[in-house]
Design a protein around this nucleic acid. Structure first.
Lengths: 191, 191, 191, 191
DNA sequence: TATGAATGAGGCTTCATTCAT
DNA sequence: TATGAATGAAGCCTCATTCAT
């Protein structure tokens, strides 16, 4: 049941993982614990599903961002990706944090790794497609560094004022920062 | 007692937070639960102390790195800082992860924030000291972005092969990446 | 569940409060601790319920006594009330004592106060109804004094041989004592 | 050590029995737990001593009251005894309550019984000495009833406003009540 | 298929008491 | 004789999971 998943998300958001009990989740979903266990055979299974939902959503947004900026310049595409990541991080951020806390348990690390690999691959493809605008030699490594660097920035920004992640000025700054790292400015065309 | 702290660290490392019980910690330290509670009035207090120990250690290493590279060029200093961060992240990494997972609970978020602020400040000072080598206008923002970007990179690297964080080639790559972002290379063209 | 309450009463009676554990109560009731906590969210809640049960029973007996002696003379009614009180005090007296010991903790003091107020009020009404047989001016005060005096007597009698509280001779003596205090006997001289 | 006893009294008064720990008592007395256990081999031994202290004090006050009213009339002596009892009950009343709560445990019931027997005996002697003013036949029984009745009244009064136990009007009322019960007024000499 | 009462292992914490110094 | 750190048994309570209805 999908309402169970949403209920779990809400409880996780409002109470945190340690106070999220299966009974509470079931009640919030208007169901009974028994029913919950019919769909999700364990608490961890519930978390896993929640994880996948979040992960899938992010993947979809990224794909959409890339599709929407198809054919545009590197800057536009990078900015779109950053914007997307920040927006997702800002959406139900408490939920994201609580899920991330549980990732080290569970085989869910794989879920995270798979996600970041996908993102990495996508970004790598973008860099390759705009190889002329990228000054670094190892674009594979560069995309990896950029992806995880930006994720780190997003995570840090999440602890501050929530508006920051949606602030265009901040997004521009991060975009510039990333493009700088990719040595866009050093390109011959800058001479 | 310090052996209690170390015992807690070991249990956390080997079993993870969910299986870390106060009794287990006490036993591992060769003490009794009662003694544990004499020194740390709650399980969370124990975590807090562990947190501070880790935090303090990192702070000290950073200070030492900066002191050791006093007077050297920007690249050397940045590299030293990255090296230090990576080394610390690689040291007892499971412990670090488990502690980080508990940070959102507890007022320890503050401990983390305070730490990253301190690091941010230190890096900012370095950038200011080497203003001539830095091409970005807003050095405060740049240092913030760089610090959190590199932390994100370190965290991602932790999930891969543990040797990576100590690999000089990788460290060089990250250093280059950071220096690029600071537009060090672009400086000549700014003439 | 009512069997939990009765189990608690039995443990309290046979072992006293300090040795009454929630697990023991649950076992005696043929249930598990978990079930106990489903019905009574804390050990104190269990005590509270026990308290109310006892209190309610006494209230009911008093009401019945008054109803049964409706229309009879003052002596008969006073005797009936005393008899009722003594009988109740003699019934499961250990239980009563253990509950009373816990009253100062808990908001249950209120329960006791409310009970004695009710009794006071009832006795006051009786005195008013038999105003012609009562020689004291302040019947409100007199009923208060009589009620608490008799309770004191009952409590003291509880410490002696248990049969005393059911001994008609003793009950007669107390009744006489109370009627004397109400100056029933002095009335003729008031002509 | 006497300061240990006083410390115990203070802790009992301010925190209640359940929060009175031997360590707290020792600290308050400016000693160590070890020392406490040198003088009082168990927590119960401490309580016992406290009990005796209170008991002895009351005994002494009663004796003093009787001595002070030697040769006076029944009313004066009864009033003095009531006054004394009320004053003692009003003094450190919380302490008294907490001690009474622990009486059922321990062989201390004996302490209480012995005390009330002593008081009973004393009052009996007073009644005998004033046999001409007492209208009841069984003075032994009457004194028992009066003693426990007044104790019950005092205990009930303790739950109300603390000033009541020291209020001369209230004391007079109780005295009158007692004298009435003893049928003082009905005596032929009252004609 | 849904329900939710029942289960019980196990965690955290307290505190009277001991004993080496 | 005083100290107070150490002990560890034992209590209260939680909650994931099961299963009879």
């Amino acid at each position: 049941m999908d309402s169970l998943l949403e209920a779990a998300a809400q409880v996780l958001e409002s109470e945190g993982f340690e106070k999220m009990t299966t009974t509470k989740v079931a009640l919030r979903a208007g169901a009974s614990v028994g029913s919950l266990y019919q769909y999700y055979p364990s608490k961890d299974a519930l978390l896993h599903a929640l994880f996948e939902r979040k992960t899938e959503r992010l993947r979809a947004r990224f794909a959409a961002s890339l599709a929407a900026t198809e054919g545009q310049g590197l800057e536009a595409r990078v900015r779109a990706l950053i914007e997307t990541l920040f927006l997702e991080k800002a959406t139900r951020s408490r939920l994201g944090v609580e899920l991330a806390r549980q990732a080290p348990r569970l085989e869910k690390e794989r879920l995270i790794e798979r996600l970041s690999e996908d993102i990495h691959r996508a970004v790598h493809a973008v860099l390759d497609a705009h190889a002329d605008e990228v000054g670094v030699a190892d674009r594979e490594l560069a995309s990896w560094l950029v992806v995880h660097g930006v994720v780190g920035i997003a995570d840090a920004a999440m602890l501050g004022p929530p508006a920051r992640l949606r602030d265009p000025v901040f997004i521009s700054a991060v975009t510039e920062h990333v493009l700088d790292a990719l040595r866009v400015a050093r390109l011959p065309s800058a001479r």
